[in-house]
């Protein structure tokens, strides 16, 4: 039995761009450009090739200690293996949902999971109120309790068309299709230009699309 030369291992969790490109709206070159971005994000505090929560917060807020309910939810959804870090494959597959060419259905489903804070399979009134309060706190906006209750009640009654006190996936989908701006933040135009945003990589790209 001979020895096989070990394949070059980039970092734990690294996956081949061809594999990721086949599963996402990205081309191979775009996945390679995303690897450049990933390397930058994953080495900003701990240089281990994995994005830790603090690194994610640092990238989003320029502050590693800034806690935010929504950023936490995004991090948790990106961390598919739920091991406390975002690996390269998880990063690319999750960002694929934010690609302008990704199916709208995927964006709607992702937003649903994002807002289903307690993983019950429904968006409940308490969850909606918790998110509104978090947003107001984040934005230093002050509204009276009455007004907050009215906003939550009104939105909930519009979305909960079955009137059972919770928003299911079907109701959520219908609500978003009626109000498409709700998933505007689920599309990142940058992703179409990722190889331009990181031009240094294009010069060293090994694969031509």
């Amino acid at each position: 039995m001979g020895c096989y030369p070990s394949k070059q291992v980039k970092t734990p969790g690294y996956e081949e761009p061809t594999v990721l490109a086949a599963e996402t709206p990205f081309t191979v070159s775009e996945v390679e450009a995303l690897y450049e971005l990933f390397k930058k994000l994953s080495s900003s505090i701990i240089d281990d090739g994995l994005i830790h929560k603090e690194e994610f917060q640092l990238a989003l807020f320029k502050n590693r200690n800034k806690r935010n309910l929504f950023a936490d939810r995004i991090f948790d959804l990106f961390d598919v293996k739920r091991n406390g870090v975002i690996e390269f494959g998880e990063f690319v597959r999750s960002l694929g949902i934010f690609h302008p060419n990704a199916p709208v259905e995927d964006k709607i489903a992702f937003a649903f999971r994002l807002y289903d804070l307690r993983h019950t399979g429904f968006i409940e009134r308490e969850e909606l109120k918790e998110m509104v309060l978090a947003l107001l706190h984040e934005s230093d906006l002050i509204l009276s309790d009455d007004v907050i209750e009215q906003i939550v009640d009104k939105t909930f009654s519009d979305a909960d068309t079955k009137g059972d006190g919770k928003i299911d996936q079907e109701e959520w989908k219908a609500f978003v299709l009626k109000h498409p701006s709700l998933i505007k933040n689920m599309t990142l135009p940058y992703l179409k230009d990722i190889t331009i945003v990181f031009p240094s990589f294009v010069l060293s790209s090994e694969v031509e699309d």
């Binding site: 971005l37 994000l41 990238a59 989003l60 807020f61 935010n68 309910l69 929504f70 950023a71 936490d72 939810r73 995004i74 960002l95 934010f98 994002l114 807002y115 909606l128 998110m131 509104v132 978090a134 947003l135 984040e138 934005s139 509204l143 007004v147 009215q150 906003i151 939550v152 009104k154 939105t155 909930f156 519009d158 979305a159 609500f175 109000h179 701006s181 709700l182 998933i183 505007k184 933040n185 990142l188 940058y190 990722i194 945003v197």
Partner: peptide, 26 residues
Amino acid sequence: TAPVTMNAFELISTSQGLNLSSLFEK
């Protein structure tokens, strides 16, 4: 009054924590 007609999900979607474009800033 204006706030009562506000869509709560619309409000939430403006969170900075959901604006991933910051990840691409050099």
